[in-house]
């Protein structure tokens, strides 16, 4: 008998996505759906998609979802989780959403130790609006609003939100990964699993920051974009466990 080694995860809808070739969102959606299935939480998970390219996440991920205004995902997820504390609530947010317009909501939800999980997609630009500078755009990076490259003393330094959140006492688990190679994709899946587990165990706020290519706005081919993320973005945003108070073994067994 044949053994199926690859199939559509149960919580991924049968739809082709609107994402560009080489974009990290579709990989990440799949990972989230796989983790939800593997943890057996599909019937009690509520997702909060953002404004941004992932706004249509409810067309792809097959769990209950409630769309948030731009940047307000953490506050909205707080409201859901407080009313339904036994449900698993996650927000899915881009870099502009979480680290610019929604900074306050994110930091304070983290500081309250809200039992929610945040998937933070860092592609270094405002994707849906056409590639403007994001808070996470790295120094020197071109964007439509930094035509000569980002200059820190004019445009601000790249914001490292995950490190900032690690300072908050309410955060339990924060890891930065990427979806630029099979190895990193597997690491990302393990990180998402751990982040959801942190919530299931009621420990506190968990977040996974995922470096994700945006070939269209970076004006690179998918392969070049993945390489650029791995080689250049990681200089500003190194892949690592930023904070882990779960008491369970981390990615590298430490």
């Amino acid at each position: 008998m044949e053994k199926k080694v690859f199939e559509r995860p149960r919580y991924l809808k049968k739809a082709s996505t609107h994402y560009c070739p080489g974009c990290g969102h579709s990989i990440l959606h799949r990972l989230v759906a796989e983790v939800i299935e593997e943890l057996g939480i599909g019937e009690r998970t509520i997702g909060v998609p953002p404004a941004g390219c992932a706004v249509l996440a409810y067309d792809y991920i097959d769990v209950d979802m409630g769309e948030a205004p731009h940047g307000r995902g953490a506050a909205l997820a707080t409201g859901i989780k407080r009313v339904l504390p036994d449900r698993i609530v996650f927000s899915y947010q881009g870099d502009g959403d979480i680290a610019a317009i929604g900074t306050a909501e994110t930091i304070h939800a983290a500081n309250r130790g809200e039992r929610i999980t945040v998937i933070f997609v860092n592609n270094g630009c405002y994707g849906m609006t056409g590639g403007q500078m994001a808070p996470t755009t790295v120094t020197g990076q071109l964007s439509t609003t930094t035509p000569g490259g980002r200059v820190p003393l004019r445009d601000g330094y790249p914001v490292d939100l995950s490190e900032m959140l690690a300072v908050a006492k309410g955060t339990v688990y924060i890891e930065r990964t990427s979806v630029t190679s099979p190895k990193n994709i597997l690491r990302t899946k393990r990180a998402i699993t751990k982040a959801f587990r942190t919530q299931i165990d009621g420990l506190g706020f968990s977040l996974v920051e995922v470096l994700s290519p945006c070939p269209t706005n970076w004006k690179l081919s998918p392969v070049e974009a993945a390489r650029w993320a791995e080689e250049t973005m990681t200089k500003t945003y190194p892949l690592k466990v930023i904070k882990d108070l779960t008491g369970t073994p981390g990615q590298d067994g430490n």
Binding site: I46, V48, G66, A68, P69, R72, A75, L76, A77, T78, G79, I80, K81, R82, V83, L84, R87, A104, E105, I107, H108, R112
Partner: peptide, 21 residues
């Protein structure tokens, strides 16, 4: 919840309302 801002407060209300409260 004493929210961090008026904006956060109304968004918490959105979430609570979505959840049926």
């Amino acid at each position: 919840i004493q929210a961090e801002s008026e904006i956060a407060a109304i968004n918490m209300v959105i979430g609570a309302s979505m959840a049926g409260a």
